[in-house]
Design a protein around this nucleic acid. Sequence first.
DNA 1: ACCTGAACACCGTTCAAGT
DNA 2: ACCTGAACACCGTTCAAGT
Lengths: 197, 197
Amino acid sequence: MSVEAAAPTRPMRADARRNYEAIVRVASEAFAEHGTQTSLDDIASRAGVGPGTLYRHFPNRDCLLEASLVDSRHRLLALGERLLDADDADDALDEWMFALARHAGTWDGLADSIAQSLNNEKSPLGASCGAVITATRKLLERATALGSVTADASARELFIMAGSLAWAADRAARGEGSGTGEDELPRLLALLMRGLR
Amino acid sequence: MSVEAAAPTRPMRADARRNYEAIVRVASEAFAEHGTQTSLDDIASRAGVGPGTLYRHFPNRDCLLEASLVDSRHRLLALGERLLDADDADDALDEWMFALARHAGTWDGLADSIAQSLNNEKSPLGASCGAVITATRKLLERATALGSVTADASARELFIMAGSLAWAADRAARGEGSGTGEDELPRLLALLMRGLR
DNA sequence: ACCTGAACACCGTTCAAGT
DNA sequence: ACCTGAACACCGTTCAAGT
């Protein structure tokens, strides 16, 4: 199917693998702490490697984001599989959209990074979203077949809207009053799903 | 009302005013071309001033964004006044939300800059949003009194959601297929308003 | 009072030199 | 094959020196 030959990827050298994993681990912490725009230089030094090593493994920021998200996306897709077997297709779609928004809201700025990457042919982050959008389409079609979802919206739009809601909930939650901002994602999502039906 | 004494702002020196205006004019072009994260250094040189002059007039990026938006916001608020006199409070709210989203979508990244500034006490951009949120509240209350808007959402949330939709429409429009991405804002907004009712 | 531009700290990215 | 860290270009921000 693919044009490029399947690279006979030999196992990584032990020190290379050690560095790779250290970088991903540190990156996840840094993204969680300072958002997706945190300094790559800083990640490299915190991982105990030179900037060149980071760039050798991850040619750009999107590659590092992608690598740091594989586990989370794997869990997300597994949930999608399970939801396809759920009795209530409506509830399943709700739950999926919620999980999708949570995924996009993992780190500050992630929803933006993902949405930007969607239009970028070169980005591995954007490419990896394909499977997630496909899962969204299946769940959407099941709910549409039930007749409860009437508004026409594509799976790609739902995917973007999930990110948009994560974005909005994050912004709405901060500095609301004196207290800690509450989680508004469920309410905003309910608003959207009401509009779909 | 305000604690700080009203500064007896004397008129600007002619050359200072000339520079101020040149910077704002160039900034608007640059923001339109490269988004709100464009280089301030570049704006300064394009305006024919040193970086120090730009920072003297606009201590940070938000100040420059704010100055570049005053005209647009003035027009927006004028529309808000007119809509308060409209016959149909529902239509008025729709039209307001559309204008709000368009405003937030003026430049790439503006919705994000605005939302970030909302939680930042120091930002003049965030401060200036107060009047817009107040206008949103009045229009929302009018529509709520009519009984058509049932979901409870605060004016602040609607303000953020307008930005969120501008964000989503912008991301959804790009690179959709081969053709030029179409404007999805009206549809996404209709979805939200349906959910509110 | 205002402007200028050198200067500083920082960041992304590359690459020649090492092992 | 992989790593290192110096090096480059760039950007935001400050400030001493000018007018």
